[in-house]
Amino acid sequence: MVDNERYTLNKNLAQMLKGGVIMDVTTPEQARIAEEAGACAVMALERVPADIRRDGGVARMSDPKIIKAIKAAVSIPVMAKVRIGHFVEAQILEALGIDFVDESEVLTPADESYHIDKTKFKIPFVCGARDLGEALRRIAEGAAMIRTKGEAGTANIVEAVRHLRAVNEGIASLRGLGRAELVARAKELGAPFELVEQVAREGRLPVVNFAAGGIATPADAALMMQLGADGVFVGSGIFKSSNPAKRAQAIVKAVTHYNNPAILAEISEDLGDPMPGVDLAALSPEERYAARGW
């Protein structure tokens, strides 16, 4: 661990993002639209996941020039993605002085055995997870924030729901267990005992947990919030829709008023066409980004 104080400060930044929407943007202009609409942070990248899916080939960290231009355009925190295990891309992003690194399955993995040792960095990391064990492995590596993997670039919420429910069920299953049982559960989860014990004691993850991967409507965002997410990432869902500014504003409001169906009804009205969705049964195993990483 770099030092505990730095890690705490990084978890603290994630706490400030709660109740907010982090939006994928590919240009300074989109970044300004996102900020104006009420994004609590932007994810700077060359292509949104839907385009990465369409184009195929190897997806890498974005050109620093794009990231710098987006950083210059907004006052809210800026995040950017690196490939799983590509610690040099992470070093480059840290050198650019952005606020958060997403070690992301949306990009083509650089290492099939190891994720980045995030304790070697000063900059905070967010990582995807499909269940409690995966979340705790990433936290053990130093992640300051977790998000569901979902299935990025599909505008289909089903995988994000599955992953968030799996994390919640994992946490609930630890309730009331004794030490010997927790040791056994730690083995099953493939996660360090100390973290498993902490989650059992506190009844929640030790870091902020956002929903990501397939959110396309205000109702999707509110669904994830009601299921217990601390906030949401919207990747392709905004700038692949017919009216990005309006949809972005509506999703921001939905995350604040997720428990108020009357407001959700009002803001869901007349948003234009959402991003066209993908039926997950149509994806081959190698087209499923969530399976990347371990």
């Binding site: 706490q15 400030m16 900020e35 609409a37 994004a39 006052s75 809210i76 921001v252 604040t256």
Partner: peptide, 14 residues
């Protein structure tokens, strides 16, 4: 509270 003032400011108005 803490958070993003741009977000809260917008929602205060809206």
């Amino acid at each position: 509270p803490g958070g993003e003032s741009t977000v809260m400011g917008r929602l205060l108005r809206d």
